[in-house]
Design a protein around this nucleic acid. Structure first.
Lengths: 342, 342
DNA sequence: GGGCGCGGTTACAACGTTGGAAATCTCGCG
DNA sequence: CGCGAGATTTCCAACGTTGTAACCGCGCCC
């Protein structure tokens, strides 16, 4: 059975196609009697609007894209979950894409797919430069997550993020508050992403405020924010002579922290007795780890809400809107991995 | 600047719209000279086909849906990742949906969205019954993951799954092989899902083969397959008097296993010395846990490949195809949580 | 040397929907 | 009893693409 179309419903109800269209879309100016009759016909025939035809005619699809580095990172999976929920509330469907941390792919997703299939895109950039993004954002609704590029002087698109400097500072201060003096920073990205730079900055700030000096050996370069990277880097830290070994590690992501925890476990170092560990992301995995890992928890629902609202505003607006930067709240959850004195 | 369309390219190249269409789609029967000219025009104008118009005309969108219970479960995130990769190779884009374990939503995703926006759907059902799915599958390309419903006698759609009975049997036999005698089964679903029933069956089979008797108290009912459920159920198990307490736990999912491991940690029981733990899914989280958790690892790439191939065949085929059931391989990875004698 | 086949190209209609304008209908009022 | 205003409904065109069928010129065969 072919799907029913407006024409079928119209014939069934004995009205014109346009009237059915009006009823379906809830356009005012249809008498109650007609509306009733049409709705019955719609139910009877199981009519569902054809999105392609609608999109072709109106120019928008009700689809927004969410492009994240990878879905298997719990943080992004959670984010995707919230974005979907938020978008659904506004009548939009979300198409989730993975960039796999590839600049070309990031750009393609922002433009290619978007331009013709999607009404707008929420992108979590990792590699693509603002220069490449700028021309895109100026003619296509685009909201960027995290990565506040190029300081405060140049905003090339809407941004939603947490205050990474403050978050890193809080986390580090928390470790210092436990009496730890040799605090490592795990997450200095070889590619020097904005997120990484900002968190390092907050780390150093807190160190300074606590009267501690920054030891570059305790801030190893890592490849990416994965468990594996955390494992490798922490193995090296654990292998340092006893006096130089860190007594605390601030990890830029929970995945790094979980890799670090595993490396410490393998090295026979206790958490938190020998080394305190804290991460960022608030993943459920950290909560169930043994010991549970402290984490700085970005309010993902708020991030999703701000991003979707912002994007939808831009989609619905006729005029070009000025770019905005939204800060989402976060909180620090101190758990078993950061208790007691060293 | 409005997006270029076929008409623009045609005018630019000095040919008809149809010829451009043919070139773009790679239809044979265009002279090299013309093709060259058209391709140059396409590049020049940055033409990209309009998917809505194409879909309206041809009746298919190149979009397939993947409906999973929730994205925040690592297993499904990984699966989504593989499905995306596989589909991309065949020229399809994947729209990921979350059912949140709601039957209505599962059905809606299989039909509603699908019928008009998607060419086909891969669904991981949890609540919806085969009776409801049967009419859908008969007129819309649908592939089911896991949940081999209603035994071997009635297949209502294509299925891709692992042999759950065998997998559970292997896992349990592995525990028995360590000399454990009081083996618990964690994952008996209150809703009696197929997956749960099959794994329980394999569990009991292995118990029988090892000469052990099934103790219902060691197979508590759980609400769902989450870490939290595993935590709650295992707390109860850990609270049993010493002689009745299990010395091993076969968890139906890694999430349950991680919750169980956490509960054992809180109760002061050592893994694997006091209690051995094994899960199913092969999530990276289990690999990095302390101790690392043994797991039965379904070949997710194979599952994705089988599912996508099967779905695409059905989409591309004109005739109705007979329903197929595909078994994907799995392997057991023994790690720290299941070593040594009790 | 005229019809034929064939590679290459084009004109036209249609996919299902919606915006805009035109048509019709319904009342109340003069 | 006719007429205008507003309410309701209808007609028409267009969105960008592709399938069908027709067209065109050219070399080839008889």
């Amino acid at each position: 059975m072919a799907a029913a179309k407006l024409k079928d419903v119209a014939e069934f109800a004995g009205v014109s196609i346009k009237t059915v269209s009006n009823v379906v879309r809830g356009v005012p100016g249809v008498s109650d009697a007609t509306r009733e009759r049409v709705l019955r016909a719609v139910r009877e025939l199981g009519y569902r609007p054809n999105p392609s035809a609608r999109r072709l005619r109106t120019g928008h699809s009700g689809l927004i894209g969410l492009a994240v580095p990878e879905l298997t990172t719990p943080y992004f999976a959670e984010l995707a979950h919230h974005v979907r929920a938020e978008a659904a509330g506004l009548g939009f469907t979300v198409l989730i894409e993975e960039t796999l941390a590839d600049a070309t792919e990031e750009l393609r997703l922002a433009t290619g797919v978007g331009a013709s299939l999607l009404d707008g895109v929420i992108l979590s950039p990792l590699r693509v430069s603002p220069d490449e993004l700028a021309p895109v954002a100026s003619e296509f609704p685009l909201v960027l997550l995290g990565e506040r590029s190029y300081g405060h002087d140049r905003v090339v698109a809407d941004h939603v993020l947490i205050d990474n400097v403050a978050a890193a500072r809080d986390a580090t201060a928390h470790l210092a508050g436990l009496g730890r003096t040799r605090i490592a920073a795990l997450g200095v990205d070889r590619k020097a992403s904005d997120t990484s730079r900002q968190r390092l900055q907050g780390f150093q700030l807190a160190l300074h405020e606590a009267g501690l000096t920054f030891d570059p050996r305790l801030a190893p370069l890592i490849e990416n924010f994965s468990r594996h990277s955390g494992l490798l880097a922490t193995r090296a830290l654990a292998a340092l002579p006893a006096g130089e070994r860190p007594d605390a590690v601030f990890c830029f992501t929970d995945m790094l922290a979980l890799g670090a925890r595993r490396a410490l476990y393998e090295a026979g170092l206790r958490v938190p007795e020998d080394v305190a560990v804290i991460g960022v992301d608030g993943s459920e995995e950290a909560l169930y780890a043994t010991p549970s890992l402290s984490s700085v928890i970005p309010d993902k629902a708020a991030i999703a809400s701000l991003a979707v609202t912002c994007l939808v505003n831009r989609i619905r607006s006729k005029e070009p809107l000025p770019f905005e930067v939204h800060l989402a709240p976060y909180r620090l959850d101190a758990r078993e991995s950061t208790v007691g004195p060293a």
